[in-house]
Structures are given as C-alpha cells and as structure tokens.
Design a protein around this nucleic acid. Sequence first.
DNA 1: AATATATTTTAGACTAGACTAAAAATATAT
DNA 2: ATATATTTTTAGTCTAGTCTAAAATATATT
Lengths: 217, 217
Amino acid sequence: MVTLSEENYLKAIYHLGKQGSVAVSTNAIAEKIKSKASSVTDMVKKLADKNLANYVKYQGVTLTEKGRLIAALVIRKHRLWEVFLVEKLNFTWDEVHDVAEQLEHIKSLKLVDELDAFLGCPTHDPHGDPIPDKDGNYSPIKSVNILEIKKGEQGVLVLVKNSSDSFLKYLNKNNLALGDAIKVIDFEPFDKSLTIETSDRKMIISNEVAKNLYLSL
Amino acid sequence: MVTLSEENYLKAIYHLGKQGSVAVSTNAIAEKIKSKASSVTDMVKKLADKNLANYVKYQGVTLTEKGRLIAALVIRKHRLWEVFLVEKLNFTWDEVHDVAEQLEHIKSLKLVDELDAFLGCPTHDPHGDPIPDKDGNYSPIKSVNILEIKKGEQGVLVLVKNSSDSFLKYLNKNNLALGDAIKVIDFEPFDKSLTIETSDRKMIISNEVAKNLYLSL
DNA sequence: AATATATTTTAGACTAGACTAAAAATATAT
DNA sequence: ATATATTTTTAGTCTAGTCTAAAATATATT
C-alpha cells in the first residue's frame, strides 16, 4: 500500500527530475512539497525500502520503474479530474488545482478508467499539460516558450506552466486562454517584457508572465 | 478543520443514534467503525472539545447541531458520489461503497453543489437511501419492511438497508433491483423465511434477507 | 443490598509523519 | 590545501490516531 504522503513525494520527485530519471536533492523536494529536508530524508528512505525510489546518501533521489508508474498514475488522475471539473462541473481553470490535489489520491482502478472514458479519453488537462495513459506514457505537445519566438511570428497558446491561482486569474482578467492565437510584436530589452497581439487587442506582458506561456507554431 | 477520522466518527454516531440525537455507546461506535472502545473514548473527547459532540462519561455520545450538520454533509457527499458512479461511470450498486467512502471526504463546497446539479439533484442514492440537502435535511421515502406486509399484498422495492458487497451481489444474482414490484405470497413460521413473487418468478428469501428489504405500498 | 458480570475509561505504549537543532559530509573560495 | 559555507543526515521530540491491559463504573443477579 502506498500512502497519500508517499504519493505526494513520488509526484514531487517525478516532476523535479524529468520523470524521476534525474537525481533530485532532498532540499529541492522539501521546497516543492513545503516541508523540511530532514522529513524528506526520512520519507525517501521509506520509499527506497519499498522499492519505489533509488536513494544514495548525499546524492539525491531517482525513481524506480515502479515508483515512476505510481507517480504517473497519480498525475493521470489529477489531470483527468481537472478535465472533469472544468468540463462537467463548471469550474474555471484557476479553481481546479486544490480539489484535484485531493481527488488524485482516490484509489480505484475502475474509477480512473471509467472517468477517462466518460471524458472521451482527453489527452490534455485544462492547462495544456498532457495526461499520461494507463501505462504512464504520454506525448507532450510540441510547444515553445513565447520568449523564444521571433518578432512577427505567431502561434497558438497550448500550455501554461504555472497553475497558481494568481497567475491563472491574471490570464482570465486579461482574456488569455488556451487555444488563443498570439502574435509576438516586440521585445523590450530594458525589462524583458513583450508586446503581443491577440484577436481582440495588443498588450504588454511582463517577462515573468511570458516565461509561463508556451505556443505551438 | 475536521479531519477524515473525525468525519468518520461523526458519521457513525449520526447513523447509530437517529441523526445523533440519541446517546450512543462507545462500544457501539467501536464496532461500527471497526476500532476499539478505548480509541473511541479518546476521539469522542476531541469531538466534544471541538463542540461537535456532547459526551458524558459512561453515558454515551450525541451530536451537537454543528456535528450533526457535518455528518449530514458527509453523508450527502457519499450518496451523491454513489449516484455519480452508477449513473455516469457504469458502476453497479455493489461496487460503489468503497469508492464513495473515499470520495465523501473531499473538501470543496463548490464541488458538492455542482455535482448535485450535474446529477439533476437526485433525492435518493442507488440503494434507496435519501440524500440530505445543503442544510442536512431530507425526507425518507415512506417504506415498510417486507416482513411487516400481509400475505397477498404487494409493493415496490425502494430501499435496501445493507450495502455490503455480498448482500448486493445476492440481489443481483437473484434479479432483485430497486423499483421491482414484489408480492408477499407466504410466510414460513419454521425458519421465518418468505415466499415472494416478482415479475419473472416466485422465490423464497431467508429472514436475514427479508430484514433488509423495504417496500413502498 | 451484595456480589458477579459487562461496559467504559485510563494509563501507557506504538506508528506514521513531521519538526528542530546538532553533527557530518560535500562544495566553494581563498 | 585548507578554511568556510552550504547541504544533507542524524538524533531526539511532537502530534494524531490507534492499541492492550488494568482500573473504574454501571448493570444484572441472586
């Protein structure tokens, strides 16, 4: 049995270390999970005992095949529930995270499979993140950060790499949503801000915001 | 904040003591919850401290108004999720209990309200149990235990008072479902079994089974 | 009413998970 | 190469929730 807490650690390691393949420091995990490095050390030993993680003192943590699969399935559940909340229960994309964070731990294979089918086997969640399949595999959309696009080029917003309430509310307020066509008009060297053009208007976005927007060309 | 464990205790007290209005013994709670009386004593003190239960040593537990509402909302969630699982995700009524037991603890007011609306504000779960409204109120269907019905009379199966896997599987196997018309043919004094007639056939049900079937006349 | 039986509570111990502070190891800078 | 700073681990403590065994109280029986 994998506990709720263990699932959260696996998820953090998965996210921080390229699906858990690259060694992650206990400190990094602690920060991600908002706990302390000492707590992480304890837990990581437990995960290693259960054959879910590889841990060498002072050298960080990776996931075993088993650990990677569990993490992927938790993420699969998280993202499927997000789709459910937005598409069926009228949640906005800035409201789903906390609830999905709880729902991702519900244990029932049938539930996940049926939910997936009920939603029409979606491939991406409301933020553009890919949904792993039953075997934990997924193919990320090919996308580029908006800062890497040349002046005058345009693309479609397919991914936002920040699910914080405040960031998503900012996008809502400014009428930016997945699927929008966006053209890069100008780059301002002084503060690294960007002028972009959407279907309704031109606007300036800060570098901070731009970092989180990914377009498909 | 009410913990998952606390919610389970509140639910048990609610079920055992007529919505928590009648004093329930720590032993009864322990049995219901599959724990030990000593654990219950500890928890019940905590609930009393939080103003969710009234507890007098050696005299059992009742719920406060606050405790009763929380219990009713947990039950509301449980039953709404059961409806969701059966109606939207192809679960059978014998498969829903364990999953609903997990889902009932998800915390989000919006989630419950939206789920309720999404399901068309159902009044009863797949076992015929009433679903409390936002304020924790509900009106049970008027129903009578099948053992109290006179020979020759008939009614519609509206409630089964046992959600165990084995009982529900028994009903499935024998083609008994909510909404079925059932006529009482005979009562056997020797073993207190019952001969009943459904649309397809006559059959004998044990007293044990009969105890759990409720009809509306 | 006195005693036996059953129920309930208390006391003390355990586990999972987390934390702080100190110690150990590693990395960085002179 | 050594001193300093940073990171990581260890040791010891805490809380929530549970348990067993013993003590206290209530109930039942004569």
